[in-house]
Every structure is written in structure tokens, then in C-alpha cells.
Amino acid sequence: MMKALIERLEQKFRISEVVRQRNDELFMTAAKEEAVSLVTYLKEYEGFTHLVLLTAVDWLEAGRFQLTYLLNNNAVKADAGIRVYLDRERPEMESIHHLWKQAATYQRELKEMFGIGFPGSPRVDEPFILEGWRDIPPYRRDFDTKKYSEKTYFPRPGRKTYDPEEYMKKQLYPEE
């Protein structure tokens, strides 16, 4: 089933890095300008009607974000993940809120947590979880949580800290 699907998609779209993770799970990379058409095609013609999730991965070293659209086809019980790479300097993507209502929530969160813009998506600029946040978007990998908490919260006196790695090594592998 999946093999035939890949062949059909390859005829219509420029897809690459196709990985069959399991018999019922497929990941592929799509070109940025074709991604929404690919998602729409999968939804309308291939039966992938359920948007499981929409999320981003930060590849800081490569200077790009990866968006992942995960779709599910409940008739044949299969998943298709579509990766899209965005330039980290100007991250912006077409919105898919017209296909699924809940996509607007995902896009609002991505705007807040990764700073990825989705022009036209409803309420995309309203804060979702963080209110009054002024730092860089916190789920980016160059945001240092430890530094932030040291800067924002005062240290409490009398607290001992252990290096977790040393501590666990002593607990788990004392003879090594």
C-alpha cells in the first residue's frame, strides 16, 4: 500500500528523503512551496483526513527549522509525516487552518515557541502559553533554560547541588 502511495506522490510532487519507519508509517521531505498542496492532496484524495500533529524541530547547526505535518489515514490505518525545511533567519510558512480547525492552535504555539510565522492564521499573534514574553522564542535551541532561570530567579541559600551524571554513576555502576 505504502509503496504504491510513494509512487503516486513521486509522480505529482518533488519529495525526497522517503523513510518507511514502520509498515504503517512513512516520513518524507517536501519542497516548501509544494508542502501545503501535498498535505491537501493527501487529505482530499488519499484519505489522510486526520491531522495528528504539527510541530517543529530546530536544526541549529544547519541553520534551518523542520516542520513536521503528521497525517493519519484511518481507513488503511497508516501515518504519513511530511517534513518541510525553513530558513532559520526568516522562518515563515503557509497556513493550513483552512484544512483543519485545530491547525490554528498548533500554528499559534509554533509562532510563540519557535518564532515561525504563519500569515493569515487566526489569532496567530496572540500569546498562547507565555504572557508578556520578551526573550527569544524559548523552544529554539539557542535559548538556554539554565541561564534564563539563573538570571530571572534568585538563588536559594543552603541548597546543595550534585552533578547528576556523577551521582547516577556512583549509584548505578559503582565499580566502573
Partner: peptide
Amino acid sequence: IPRGETYIR
């Protein structure tokens, strides 16, 4: 763990 990605539900 080697490079990869998956979804478990």
C-alpha cells in the same frame, strides 16, 4: 541512539 524519527501512539 542513532539518528531517526518516529511517532508512537
